[in-house]
């Protein structure tokens, strides 16, 4: 089954791909803080927009691909900030909040797209109590695609038997997926124990 991996571009040779994961995390935090505190004047936002484009070009990420990813979160942002329109000076608040969020999310996307998940997991491990987060993160990354595959297989099986899945069928499939996930977790635990892992 064909998957779109969030870290697909991490395997290309580009500027952000070459930056050390730890340094990238620090850089990201600094950039996000800067975006958070910039005054509400359009002029101040221009360098950040230019920076986003420079990162895109030098990290070899196609603009259209990036735009498609960003567009997914557009409706959420619109809903989130649309309430502010009803306040005094609402349109201004809405526009700048929207712009701030968009720039921040663009940076986060750029960071995630150009960082190998395995490298990120290794970095998290170095943080205090990071081993636990790293393990959860690794499992999530490893089994997300597998669950996606299983869901697709069940859906295809349903379609092949003449049923075009509707909302309640998706609920049924999700329930089935939950049971399968539980069973798989039992088998994975057995595989871990058989290779010497002990429950801590």
């Amino acid at each position: 089954m064909k998957h779109h991996f969030i870290d697909d571009f991490a395997y290309k040779k580009g500027f952000l791909q070459r930056v050390d994961t730890g340094l990238k995390v620090i850089l990201l935090i600094l950039l996000l803080l800067c975006v958070l505190v910039i005054p509400e004047k359009v002029l101040f936002y221009i360098p950040f927009i230019i920076l986003t484009f420079l990162f895109l070009i030098f990290s070899k990420i196609p603009f259209i691909y990036f735009l498609k990813r960003i567009l997914i979160i557009f409706p959420f942002l619109l809903v989130l900030f649309s309430l502010s329109i009803f306040k005094e000076n609402g349109l201004r608040i809405f526009l700048f909040s929207f712009l701030k969020s968009l720039i921040s999310i663009s940076f986060v996307f750029l960071f995630v797209m150009t960082t190998k998940m395995t490298a990120l997991s290794e970095f998290i491990k170095k943080l205090p109590a990071g081993f636990l987060i790293s393990d959860i993160f690794s499992f999530l990354y490893r089994y997300f695609f597998l669950l996606q595959d299983e869901f697709e297989k069940m859906k295809r099986a349903m379609i092949s038997k003449g049923k075009n899945p509707k909302l309640k069928d998706y609920a049924l499939l999700s329930g089935n997926l939950f049971i399968r996930s539980y069973e798989r977790s039992e088998r994975v635990l057995k595989a871990m124990i058989s290779r010497g892992w002990k429950i801590k």
């Binding site: 595989a191 871990m192 058989s194 010497g196």
Partner: peptide, 22 residues
């Protein structure tokens, strides 16, 4: 336990780490 190696029917059950190395 160290003396035994168990190969599971479905390799996805046995490969739970993010990299082959791990």
């Amino acid at each position: 336990r160290k003396k035994m190696g168990f190969l599971f029917e479905n390799p996805d059950d046995a490969l739970f780490m993010p990299r082959v190395f791990d």
